[in-house]
Design a protein around this nucleic acid. Structure first.
Length: 500
DNA sequence: CGACGGGACGC
DNA sequence: CGACGGGACGC
């Protein structure tokens, strides 16, 4: 018979246990025939994802079926897919097409129908050096991109570090928001050009009502003259920015766990095939892939041998090897995360993602050091385009730091936060990152703009304590630094997420 | 046209 | 003393 109802059984419990607007746009408003039952809806809608709530609106007293239902999915992408597939389809016997639309948030009293235009454009923070093409290359994996645009200073043309990506379908934008690197801080963009948009509703966090708008004939914010307009999959713009990979630092020798897996920081344009032929010289190579950090654009290869000896030998022979000429490979051991996931395919996928995240973190934690011993001019070329522009830091501190350690994943839970105070102009974020990562499990360190203090977030309490014990009172780049346990964060309501 | 549900379980 | 980051689109 029908599918089991494990998720919706006892929908009242669910209703009270869950925030209906979390995540935003995960709820659908259905207009159906008055004869449609819960079972009818469940049968048709459960295939799109985890149905967390299902409710048919009935008159409070007469219990009359009003031809309206609300369903909630775990994810906005599921809700959007269901809408895209089911809107306009007949559901039950009478054959009348139903309506399926993303529901307005419960907090909002606005009942304007949400249009695709409201749901297909995302807004995100990007490195200042990102181009529209970089954005496209990073986000096309989530769907059909209509265009990418980056906000730029009118006069200097410098990127302001914000961008927009317009997808063709709401589900694609939702997938991008759900799955892209956290550093993008991607959210659904507020619809543009909704004339006299209510900017400041009296309601606290409601985003206020948008007056109705006319017409769906194309979106008015579409940049004219977008280079690669039709959504296509020619990502070969390999020319993005990786000069700096030519200058990767020496590999971290100290005591990385010996494993069969290696990461290799590589230059722009290096292909999987090239890596295969290079590392395939050593017998036992069983996996090779070249990937790119979606945020920084760093490119690196992931290699796995079928035995540790081969991996050790490969690193021995190829670390700092010049390839291609003029570029030095940086080869490091990384954890064999796949071993932890015993067997099955989905687990293998997760493991690979873990490995990937770790590699990215490793590269990220290395870049602060990349400028060392490198001709400064290498960073002044217009094509440079990395996330940040490090300045040469001959030595951060007056003692020898422990070896670099990979950053923790951006998703990991913060276990400890340190409060940093500088006696003068704080060192760059890159330098600080490179210093604090040495104690392991660093998530992020940042300094508040125009201030002399900042925070270092760790995914591990012991690592944070190590960092504090070692770094408190030290001079970093000539600036005295205090490192103290941070007070609990001021709990302001959550970062704004548009909920309509 | 078609917009919001009473029932919780544990400090 | 030193306490909480960065968010919006020409006309």
């Amino acid at each position: 018979m029908a599918s089991p109802d494990r998720d919706v059984r006892g929908s009242h419990r669910g209703y009270h246990a869950m925030n209906l607007d979390d995540p935003p746009n995960s709820r659908l408003f259905l207009v159906v025939s008055k004869t449609t039952s819960e079972a009818d809806i469940r049968e048709k809608f459960s295939r799109f994802g985890e149905l967390q709530d299902l409710w048919i609106v009935k008159d409070k007293h007469t219990k009359e079926h009003k031809g309206i239902a609300f369903i909630k999915y775990a994810r906005a992408s599921e809700a959007c897919r269901a809408m895209e597939e089911m809107n306009g389809q007949p559901l039950s016997g009478d054959g009348k097409p139903i309506k399926a639309m993303v529901a307005q948030s419960r907090a909002s009293n606005n009942h304007r129908d949400l249009e695709d235009e409201d749901l297909t454009r995302i807004f995100l923070m990007i490195p200042k050096t990102y181009t529209e093409e970089d954005l496209r290359e990073n986000f096309q994996e989530y769907g059909d991109i209509e265009y990418c645009s980056i906000l730029k200073d009118k006069n200097t043309k410098d990127s302001k570090g914000f961008g927009y990506v317009r997808f063709l379908k709401p589900s694609q934008a939702a997938l991008a928001i759900e799955n892209c690197d956290k550093r993008f801080k991607a959210i659904l963009a507020d619809p543009k050009n909704r004339s006299s948009q209510i900017q400041h509703s009296h309601m606290e966090h409601a985003h206020g009502g948008y007056p109705p708008y006319g017409g769906r004939e194309g979106y008015s914010d579409m940049p004219r003259m977008q280079g690669s307009f039709p959504p296509s999959a020619h990502a070969m713009s390999g020319d993005f920015t990786h000069q700096r990979n030519a200058t990767v630092p020496p590999a971290q020798t100290p005591d990385p766990a010996i494993s069969r897996c290696l990461s290799v920081a590589v230059a722009v344009g290096v292909t999987k095939e090239q890596m295969l032929s290079l590392f395939g010289i050593i017998p036992g190579l069983e996996y090779c892939d070249v990937q790119r950090d979606p945020y920084t654009g760093y490119r690196f290869a992931y290699l796995k041998y079928n035995n540790p000896a081969s991996a050790i030998y490969a690193r021995e022979k190829l670390n700092r090897f010049e390839y291609p000429p003029g570029f030095q490979l940086t080869v490091n051991f990384i954890e064999d995360a796949e071993a932890a996931a015993s067997g099955s395919n989905p687990l293998g996928m997760m493991a690979l993602q873990l490995v990937t995240a770790q590699m990215m973190a490793t590269v990220a934690s290395n870049y602060g050091n990349m400028a060392q011993g490198v001709p400064q001019q290498a960073f002044n070329t217009p094509k440079m385009g990395m996330a940040t522009t490090p300045t040469a830091e001959p030595q951060y501190l007056n003692f020898k730091l422990p070896p670099r350690q990979p950053l923790a994943s951006q998703d990991s839970e913060m276990k400890e936060r340190l409060f940093l105070v500088f006696s003068g102009m704080p060192p760059s974020q890159e330098a600080l990152t490179d210093v604090f990562c040495r104690y392991g499990n660093l998530i992020e360190v940042y300094v508040l703009p125009q201030k002399n203090y900042g925070y270092a977030k760790f995914a591990d309490g012991d690592c944070a304590k190590d960092a504090m014990d070692s770094l408190h009172g030290q001079e970093v780049c000539g600036v005295k630094m205090k490192v103290l346990p941070a007070d609990p964060p001021k709990d302001e309501a959550r970062k704004r997420q548009r909920t309509n």
